[in-house]
Design a protein around this nucleic acid. Structure first.
Length: 256
DNA sequence: AACCGTGCCAACCGCGCAACG
DNA sequence: ACGTTGCGCGGTTGGCACGGT
């Protein structure tokens, strides 16, 4: 198809953002709102590509970003959500208000993956994963595998669509309608399950998330679409109740 | 003080999906 | 139906900070 690169890269600034650039971006977005990232830099007077602007805004400049250390509660939640969702950083971030997918990804790679490795040493479960950082000792694969986890666009409309797909698939109406319409949609990655069997990588080593791994030590129950709405509903309730103990045993039962 | 190894994190990259014409 | 565009995603990298020797 010969798709053009997202930006010409000629004459554009790269690297760390200056305070002036930040100010320009903030001012523009405050005046005109988010979106139209491609044309935004030009209109805002920035010599950056739209992608870079979006990233800067999403990960750093948004007013609702929570800076600072990850709390033990958040830490715990990340671990549990990762065990459920795998490397779906955006989904995990969706459950942690004020945290970005990038921040959680970095936190996982630098803290949790190591800790988990220690804790699960001797446990041959392949369900828990971690990505290869440049100092992790794992060879980075420069050229991305084509069997990588498909990117999932997470938006309220896509969630609503996925839920309706699952309803059609399972004949269930147990998923509340507001889940798909709300902007604070809990574990919105239901598409994860709808992908099973179609976008599933042929080589499970390429992916360390529980949903795709056909290894027998992983939760085969999750591969069964029939159960998905029930799992989802139960999970939503436990999250609402904020009962960590129940949530833990729920996750354990899934991974058993 | 200089050097080296490691950790952390902001930013970049390339791909895939969905919307649109 | 098909090609193009825009956006979002996860993986990866580069560079700074810091601690150890």
């Amino acid at each position: 198809m010969g798709r053009a690169p997202c930006c010409s890269k000629v004459g554009l600034h790269r690297g760390p953002w200056t305070t002036r650039e930040d100010t320009l971006l903030i001012n523009y977005i405050q005046a005109h709102g988010e979106g139209h990232w491609r044309s935004l830099p030009k209109k805002a007077g920035l010599l950056r590509c739209g992608k870079s602007c979006r990233l800067r805004w999403m990960n750093y400049l948004r007013p609702d970003i929570k800076r600072g250390n990850i709390t033990p509660d958040e830490d715990d939640l990340i671990v549990r959500l990762h065990s459920l969702l795998g490397n779906r950083w955006s989904l995990i971030a969706g459950r942690l208000p004020g945290r970005t997918d990038n921040e959680i990804k970095n936190y996982w790679n630098s803290h949790l993956s190591k800790r988990l490795k220690k804790n699960t040493a001797g446990n041959k479960s392949k369900c828990m994963g971690g990505s290869a950082g440049k100092r992790s000792g794992i060879k980075p694969n420069k050229k991305r595998s084509k069997t990588r986890t498909p990117a999932i666009r997470v938006s309220p409309s896509s969630v609503a669509k996925n839920i309706s797909n699952i309803r059609n698939m399972t004949g269930s109406s147990s998923i509340p309608a507001e889940v798909g319409n709300s902007t604070s949609w809990g574990i919105s990655g239901l598409k994860v399950a709808s992908n099973v069997g179609e976008g599933r990588p042929s080589n499970s080593e390429e992916f360390d998330g529980p949903f795709y791994d056909h290894d027998s030590s992983c939760p085969s129950s999750l591969l069964n679409g029939i159960m998905l709405d029930d799992i989802f509903e139960e999970y939503q309730q436990l999250l609402k109740a904020d009962d960590h103990g129940q949530l833990d045993s729920f996750v354990d039962s899934l991974l058993a």
